[in-house]
Simulated scan of single mutants.
Amino acid sequence: MRALTVQQPWAWAIFNGKRIENRTQLWRYRGPLAIHAGQRLSDRGMGDERIHRAVRHWQRGVVAHGGATPLLRDALEYGVVLGVVDLVDCHPDAGCCAPWGEQAYVEHGGRERRRITHLVLERPRLLPEPIPCKGLLGLWTPPADITAQLEELTR
């Protein structure tokens, strides 16, 4: 099993309707992928209309089950593995994968536009309790004890 660190609220969104993760390189790996919520909050993500729509949908579900309207900031967790998805495809952007697929983005603080690769995610399985774990950049292998816990979700 491999893992991917994703900034919040994008990591939350993967378990709330987001089926495309945007990256800048093609990967050969296919299979179970642990989603790790990084330590940073993406200001761009918090202002993104796609996230706002997912939050409104999530809030309606919580209220429909008798809960109070939650705030996204209160629900976000950091430095934890949230769950597992299946990485089923990885392809360069071709104007596809709406609404989550992006075409290009500007690096943090720079002017360079980077081409985007779409990671196609299926079957999100959220853990009952997130697992604290230090993340890494790129595609990485979780520690053996965490992998053992996550393999329960891949069956």
Rank of each mutant, 00 (worst) to 15 (best):
M1S: 05
M1R: 10
M1Y: 03
M1P: 04
A3D: 07
A3I: 02
L4N: 00
V6K: 07
Q7Y: 10
Q8W: 03
W10T: 11
W10P: 04
A11W: 01
A13Q: 02
A13R: 09
F15R: 04
F15G: 00
F15C: 04
F15H: 07
F15E: 02
N16M: 06
N16A: 01
K18G: 06
R19M: 12
R19V: 08
N22C: 13
L26W: 10
W27A: 09
R28W: 13
R30D: 05
G31P: 00
G31T: 09
L33T: 09
L33P: 06
I35E: 00
I35D: 04
H36C: 08
A37Y: 01
L41T: 14
S42T: 09
D43T: 15
R44D: 10
R44L: 13
R44Q: 14
G45K: 06
M46C: 03
G47L: 00
D48V: 09
R50S: 02
I51G: 01
H52G: 12
H52E: 13
A54R: 09
V55R: 02
R56S: 13
W58K: 07
Q59Y: 05
Q59K: 11
R60M: 10
V62E: 11
H65A: 14
G66Y: 04
G67L: 05
A68V: 11
T69Q: 11
P70G: 09
L71N: 13
L72H: 06
A75F: 02
E77Y: 02
E77D: 10
Y78H: 12
Y78L: 04
G79S: 04
G79W: 07
V80T: 06
V80N: 03
V81H: 05
V81W: 03
V81I: 14
L82V: 08
G83Y: 01
V85A: 00
V88L: 10
H91V: 14
H91K: 15
D93K: 06
G95T: 08
C96V: 13
P99G: 08
P99D: 12
W100E: 03
W100N: 07
G101N: 05
A104Q: 15
Y105T: 15
H108V: 14
G110W: 14
R111V: 15
E112G: 11
R113H: 12
R114G: 04
R114L: 15
R114F: 09
R114S: 11
R115A: 15
R115Q: 15
T117M: 15
T117Y: 14
H118K: 12
L121I: 01
E122L: 10
L126E: 10
I131D: 02
P132V: 02
P132G: 02
C133E: 06
C133H: 10
G135E: 00
L136T: 12
G138A: 02
G138T: 08
L139M: 13
L139E: 07
T141K: 06
P142N: 04
P143T: 06
A144T: 09
T147H: 01
T147Q: 08
Q149P: 01
L153T: 01
T154C: 12
T154K: 00
